[in-house]
Structure formats: structure tokens, C-alpha cells
Amino acid sequence: MRARFWLGLTLFVALIAAVMPVPAWIEDFRPDWLLLVLGYWALALPNRVNVGTAWSLGLVLDILQGAVLGANALALSVVIYVLALHFQKIRNFSVWQQAIIISLLSIMVKLLSYWMSYLAYDIDFNDQQLWGALINFLLWPWLFYLMRRYRRHFRIS
């Protein structure tokens, strides 16, 4: 029960960070906080954080952002499915190799979200949003070690 609370708290903080307002010039460089935290938990505890968790949080993110309902949910659930499918291999990679995988998956999230929005609204693709993948690449090692320390401190398993 206690471990579930601490795990949920990290996901809640990531959700808040994902929708927190930032200046317009920083918006393109915003990391995918929810993807990073969900990705960590999907690799560390695949039995607790799975596609259903990603789908639920993606729907909440869609509602909070006012995006096409299901766009983030689909994108996050596909990416978490890929991570859950290969979690044993990815766990054995170095942190920088994991960062490359996370950044490629964040590009996949951006493209899937764009595709869903394009089908609904016929919008143009903003390639400046892909800078977030570079930021995710740089943040992953720091977040990985921080979350691992957090998981061990609160004995989340």
C-alpha cells in the first residue's frame, strides 16, 4: 500500500510537470516528463506500471491539455508496450544507450500524437517539437539515477 502511494506520487508529479505552463520560447524544449517517469517505472517495475497505466495517464493528459482525446493515450501506451516487451534487454543496456532508446521513443510519441491531431484537425507538423527528444536524451541519466535512488529509499517493489 505504501509503495503504491509513492509510485503514484511520482506519476502525479510527472503529470503536473507535463501540463505546467512555461514561457512560449521554452515550450519546444519541454521534456516529456510523463514519458520519462512512465518509462522508468515500466523498466523497473513492469508488473506494476504497464500499458493500462500509460493509457489512463495519457487520457488524463489529453483532458488536461485539451488535446484530441486519445492522442497521448495511444502514443504513451504504444511506447510503454515497446518498453514492456523488451524491458529485460533494455535494463541491461548502459544508461546512455537507454537514453538513446528513450529519445527515439519520445520522437515516436511526438509523431503519433501529431498523426492523431492531424486526422482530427488537419494541423501542420512543428519540427521544433523534436528538440524535446534531445532534452529527454540529456535528462534520462539524471532522472534514472534519481528515480532509482527514490525507489530504493522508499522500498518500492
Rank of each mutant, 00 (worst) to 15 (best):
R2T: 13
R4A: 13
F5E: 13
W6T: 07
L7F: 03
G8L: 04
L9S: 06
L9V: 08
T10F: 02
L11G: 06
L11K: 06
A14S: 09
L15G: 13
A17G: 09
A17K: 09
A18C: 06
P21S: 09
P21N: 11
P23D: 12
A24P: 10
W25H: 15
I26G: 03
E27D: 15
D28K: 14
D28Y: 15
P31W: 04
W33Q: 05
W33K: 08
L35N: 03
L36P: 02
V37A: 01
L38P: 01
L38R: 03
G39S: 01
A44I: 04
A44E: 14
A44R: 15
L45A: 12
P46Y: 11
P46C: 09
N47A: 15
R48Q: 15
V49C: 06
V49M: 08
S56Y: 12
L57R: 11
L57A: 08
G58C: 03
L59S: 00
V60R: 04
V60G: 10
I63L: 14
L64R: 14
G66H: 10
G66R: 12
V68W: 08
V68Q: 08
V68D: 02
L69E: 07
N72F: 03
S77P: 01
V79S: 12
I80R: 06
I80A: 01
A84R: 15
A84E: 15
L85T: 14
L85P: 04
L85N: 14
L85K: 15
F87N: 12
K89F: 13
N92T: 13
F93K: 04
F93Q: 11
S94Q: 08
Q97P: 01
Q98D: 07
Q98N: 04
Q98I: 06
A99E: 05
I102P: 06
L105Y: 02
S106M: 00
I107H: 01
M108D: 04
K110M: 10
L111P: 03
L111F: 12
L111M: 12
L111A: 11
S113N: 13
W115K: 10
A120G: 03
A120V: 08
Y121L: 15
D122L: 13
D122I: 11
D122S: 15
I123D: 00
D124L: 13
D124M: 09
F125M: 10
F125Q: 06
D127I: 14
Q128C: 05
Q129D: 08
W131D: 01
G132W: 01
I135W: 05
I135R: 04
F137L: 15
L139C: 10
L139A: 10
L139G: 10
W140F: 02
W140C: 05
W142L: 14
L143K: 05
F144K: 06
Y145S: 11
M147G: 03
R149D: 11
R149E: 12
R149C: 05
R149V: 04
R151M: 08
F154S: 08
F154D: 08
R155K: 15
